[in-house]
Amino acid sequence: MTLAGPRTHAEASRQSRDLASGEVRPRETMIRFVAGPDNRVVPDLAGRLPGRGLWVAADRTSVETVAKKGLFSRSARTALKASPDLAAQVEALLLKRLLDGLGLARRAGDLVTGFEKVVSTVGEGRAAWLVEAIDGAPDGRRKVLSALRRASPSPGLVGLWTGEELSLALGGENVIHTAFLVGRGADRWTFDVQRLSGFRPLVPESWSEAPASAPRSSDPAQDV
C-alpha cells in the first residue's frame, strides 16, 4: 500500500524514498546509509554523517534485498560495497543505541528501577515502556507483566538485555525491572524501538505470558 503524501513542506522534508520498495516513507521508519571513505555502505542511525543519504525501510528483508541487488550502487550511481551482514550490523547498532539511550534517560531522571517502584509506576499509568531483563526470575516477571496488563494506558514491553547489561548501562546493581517514564525522552527512544522491531522480536519467544508489545504512539514530527 502506498503511503499518503505529505500535507506540508515540513512533512515532505522528513520523508525519503525507500530503495527497497520505491515508496516515499517517513524517515523515522527508515535507516539512513551513506558511502564511507572506501565506498563501503555505512549505517547512519543518527542521520548525521556527511554525504548523500541512502534510505531503506527499517526491516531486515528490505536491507538484505537492497544490499543483495546492488540497489545502493544504482541509487548512488557509483560502485558501493554493501557487506553481506549489513542487516545484522544495523541490528547490533540499534541495540547499542537503545541501551545507551537508557543510560542517558537514567541521568535525566526518566527511569525508575526496582520491582516495587516499577509496579507502582506502571499501575499509575506513568510508564511509556517496561524494560525487563531477559534473565530475570520468571515469578517476578509474571507479577510485573500482570501490572502491565492492568495499566491504562498500557506501556510497551522490551526484553532485549541481561540484568548484567542493564546494570552496566544504568550504573546500578542487579537491575532487572525498569520503567521508562512518559515524556519526550521516551518518545525519542520509541523511534529506535520501532526500527529495531523490523530486525528482531522485542521480547524472547519463551515469554509466552508476555502481552503484545506494540510501541506507544509518539510525536510524528520528531526527526531521527
Rank of each mutant, 00 (worst) to 15 (best):
M1N: 07
M1D: 02
T2I: 09
A4W: 01
A4H: 05
P6G: 00
T8E: 01
A10W: 14
A12F: 04
R14K: 12
S16I: 00
D18W: 06
D18Q: 03
S21W: 00
V24K: 03
R27V: 05
E28I: 06
T29M: 12
M30L: 13
I31L: 11
I31V: 15
I31W: 10
R32N: 09
F33M: 02
A35L: 04
A35V: 04
G36K: 00
G36W: 08
G36Q: 11
G36V: 00
P37F: 12
D38H: 08
D38A: 15
R40C: 14
V41G: 03
V41D: 00
V42C: 10
D44N: 13
A46K: 14
P50D: 04
G51S: 14
R52N: 13
W55D: 04
W55E: 04
W55G: 09
V56E: 05
A57H: 10
D59K: 06
D59H: 15
D59P: 02
R60Y: 11
V63N: 00
E64F: 02
T65F: 09
K68S: 10
K68I: 03
F72R: 03
F72G: 01
S73H: 07
A76F: 13
R77H: 06
A79F: 15
L80T: 04
A82V: 05
A82W: 03
S83R: 14
D85N: 13
A87R: 00
V90C: 08
L94H: 01
L95I: 10
K96S: 06
R97Y: 00
L99H: 02
L99Q: 00
D100A: 12
G101R: 07
L104M: 11
L104S: 10
L104I: 08
L104E: 13
R106G: 05
G109R: 11
G109N: 11
L111F: 04
V112C: 01
G114C: 09
G123L: 02
W129T: 05
L130I: 10
E132S: 15
I134Q: 12
D135Y: 13
D135F: 04
A137M: 09
D139I: 09
D139M: 03
R141N: 01
K143E: 14
K143C: 07
K143G: 01
L145V: 05
L148K: 06
R149M: 01
S152G: 15
S154G: 07
G156N: 09
L157I: 07
L157D: 00
L157N: 02
L157F: 03
V158W: 05
V158L: 15
V158D: 08
V158H: 06
G159W: 14
E165A: 03
E165P: 02
G171Q: 03
G171Y: 01
G171E: 09
G172Y: 00
E173L: 06
T178H: 10
A179C: 05
F180K: 10
L181D: 09
L181S: 05
V182S: 12
R184L: 11
G185P: 05
D187R: 11
R188T: 13
R188Q: 09
W189D: 04
W189E: 08
D192K: 01
V193H: 02
Q194G: 12
Q194V: 14
R195D: 01
L196M: 05
R200I: 06
P201S: 05
V203Y: 02
V203M: 02
V203A: 06
V203H: 01
V203S: 00
S206Q: 08
E209M: 14
A210L: 03
A210C: 11
A212N: 09
A212R: 15
A212T: 13
A212P: 01
P215F: 08
S217P: 04
S218A: 12
